[in-house]
Nucleic acid binder design. Structure first.
Lengths: 154, 154, 154, 154
DNA sequence: TTTT
DNA sequence: TTTT
């Protein structure tokens, strides 16, 4: 089974961050994606979707440090649905995207908003993390340049 | 803005298909994705997510013809959320995935269930459609093999 | 079978656009994706991947009009590989991404480079196109607001 | 920058697995994705793409244990290109997909080839790994059911 | 060849 | 609640 969501959108507010009793950090925020289209009168209409995003642990810590209302971010995650009963015993359903990766596409403020944020601002990104699990991770004494093709056993 | 969902899962039932007054066809079905994990006692637990899928027009027609309860399919689409009020004037929210592409990964029945279904069973797939918009679409008199690289102006 | 590529990166040059004899338009460009990482001395290193992108027909026309060297774009497409023989009869292989969708994430110039480009600048985007095939597309006399849930036959 | 590839296809051979001097395991295999289309005579043609896949470390170990020629798998990864010079000093380019996740969609043999393989056969999958990093991971004494919404601090 |  |  595969369950994968990819979004680029804007944060409606700063993330809300909490810690559970077991120490795990959680962050939640809303992300707006939208599309513009012309209606039959030729006027631009905006159809905005607000997605509820939840992130855990290291991703939540990174969200707390780096995400602010108004930013545009890229994220990947999975769709989860929870069913519960409200005070009138009606069945209610909540849908959230559990994101396991995000990166900032654009800061909202003018400051460095004009630039695609460098990954240097974003040290815990998946690419670096991936280096741990995907790459040979040479020790200092046997550093292999990525292009050192001859060192590969193929 | 980007809003993209990718799922592989099983149909809970045959699709429900309807036509609107304007002639547009709509189909809906539920798709289960799941993951297994060991709980603290070491027993396998299954966490199933049921997603509400909706497809329109040509995709709905193809769904009606080809999709059956129990099949495993791959699909791509976008997440949409609608807010409405129930009889008690509570705000309720419904989340659906509007799929613009699907393909069968496995038939549920034993018949040809063992084989990855051929695209020959699936003539309206995106790849064929893409040929219309993505490829040179040569006329009969100037058919270009895909490998006829020399005919390309680069 | 599924073959899907998703990239966000920068254009190395303006697209090269050509028309085939059959009238089909083709555009090609290179897209850089990169990741930064610290090397063992703690210096930032950049690992850039240059991807060859090819787009056809309507997507090529849109690329010609809207894409410029230095822009950051999001795209989706598929991986294709072609094998050919060079002048020394060596087998050579070329890999290209045939993109069927793109959207501008950031203009390179200062002008409106600070803003996430509106879809209003981007009328041929997939979302609009999707409206044609995914939505009921009501006629003027029976316009249905997207939220007019009651009009749906479910 | 984002660089993401999603494939469902068939393994051309068993993976080739090696260990580097630093102990890192590497596995390589070819994956075929294809699409069928009718040519102008109305005959079915098959266009197969063969992708070179490379996986590292834990993913490579899992590939060695579980992947066999003929299986259909889903994978996610990133595109990488390497440039090198052949014996005639020609610049040559090699494209590989560095996969960071895969799962078996269909076994090739008749044995349990008819069923979508359970994640129970696939213990090192991303979903389980994600549980480690994405979920609260309660200790035994404070186990929280996934639906125990009231225990979350929102 | 881009970008930070 | 964002953004254009």
């Amino acid at each position: 089974m595969v369950n994968r969501v990819i979004l680029i959108g804007n944060l409606g507010k700063d993330p809300e961050v909490r810690s559970l009793e077991n120490g795990a950090m959680v962050a939640k925020f809303s992300l707006a994606t939208g599309e513009s289209y012309r209606d039959k009168e030729g006027n631009w209409q905006e159809q905005t979707e607000w997605h509820d995003i939840i992130v855990w642990r290291a991703v939540a810590e990174r969200a707390e440090k780096s995400l602010k209302k108004g930013m545009t971010i890229y994220l990947e995650g999975k769709l989860t649905h929870r069913t519960w009963q409200d005070k009138d015993s009606n069945n209610r359903k909540t849908t959230e995207i559990v994101a396991d990766y995000f990166r900032i596409v654009k800061n909202s403020s003018g400051a460095n908003g004009a630039s695609f944020p460098s990954e240097k601002d974003d040290p815990n990104n998946r690419n670096n993390v991936s280096n741990v699990s995907d790459a040979p991770m040479p020790t200092a004494s046997e550093e292999l340049p990525v292009t050192a093709d001859d060192d590969l056993p193929f």
